[in-house]
Simulated scan of single mutants.
Amino acid sequence: MSTTEAVMSSGAAVVRRPRRVRMAWFLVCLGILALLVVASIAIGTRTVPVSSILSALGGSDETLDEAVIQVRIPRTVLAIIAGAALAVSGAVFQGVTRNPLADPGILGINMGASLAVVIGLAYFGMSNPNSQIWVAISGAALSAIFVYAVGSLGRGGPTPLKLALAGAATSAALISFVTAVILPRGDIAENVQSWQIGGVGGATFERIWQMLPFIGVGLAICFLSAKSLNSLALGDDVAAGLGEKVAVARGMASLGAVMLAGAATAICGPIGFVGLVVPHLCRLLVGPDHRWLLPFTALTGASLLLAADVVGRIIARPAEIEVGIVTAFIGAPFFIYIVRRQKVRAL
């Protein structure tokens, strides 16, 4: 029996989906993403006629309407990239820890990246986005290691609820540290507080190009780890029996997930619950095989964050609600539902 077949036959797995069903869902998800791209460009606090949208897409920015569209385009691209990165990061963390509650926000990883960036801004004057991304990834990695170590203490090892509690406690502590850092610094407090909410407003192609190498490497590591994640789903002993180097596989997959969460947080701020909700939805659509799950998760995560951004522009006109607030309204009830499930110990 192959590793993938073994994953499909395990008691914790979802029923395997035929290839044609997966391809059908892929086309559906792709169509939804395309519609959301159109909505993101066309919808905002200002109503823009179709003629201005088409001319702006052609590169013109002579009128105010065309200039508005030129601002929305990088915002749309950033939402797609950040949503995909956060969703894949969550799926990988869930696979590595076999924890249905795993999410970069819930595990304190986003706040670790956030604190590192704030310290860099406040004490080192770090204004270069490239440097901020490196610092954010380092902070995310340290936070992930700390939460996993604390959640592994005691009997039973790193159970889902212990990791969630350790992550929640760590996030609360890190939020307090962030507040302590920015309170004396009135020169950066306003910008940092806005960034801390999590959003994609103010996106520029310059910043997107700076984050793309990190996102690309992180996605590549995660996708290459798909087979190993299938093995880890069977348990460490079985994975080792299948020839998998468990510690190396877990470390490499976690590295990719940390890079994705850290880079997205550095540019967008800490956006929560995308990595929690999306992987669970995608497992229902395409099953637990990570070779299919991760690409679908990236596509669906991009759609979710893009939809959250569009909704935030509509419901608060003429103002906007940042995507971090919208995703919290979506994800918090889902988190409570997962916690209350009887089979919360493993995927």
Rank of each mutant, 00 (worst) to 15 (best):
E5Y: 00
E5D: 01
G11M: 01
M23T: 12
C29D: 02
L36I: 14
L54F: 06
E62T: 13
E66S: 09
I69M: 06
R72W: 04
I73D: 08
T76F: 05
I80C: 13
I80H: 05
S89Y: 02
G90Y: 11
G90V: 09
A91E: 02
Q94H: 07
V96Y: 02
L101F: 10
G108K: 12
A113R: 03
I119L: 08
I119P: 05
F124W: 08
S131P: 06
S131Q: 13
S131C: 10
I133A: 06
V135I: 09
V135H: 00
G139A: 10
A140N: 07
I145A: 11
Y148L: 03
Y148H: 04
L153R: 15
P160V: 03
A164W: 07
A164E: 02
A168D: 14
F177Y: 13
A180E: 15
I182S: 08
W209G: 06
F214L: 09
K227L: 12
N230A: 00
G235Y: 01
L242P: 00
L242W: 00
V248I: 13
G251L: 05
A253D: 07
L255A: 14
L255S: 12
G262Y: 01
R283M: 02
L285K: 04
P288M: 05
W292T: 10
L294E: 04
L294S: 02
L299T: 14
T300I: 15
A316V: 13
P318Y: 10
G324W: 08
A328Y: 08
R341G: 12
V344I: 13
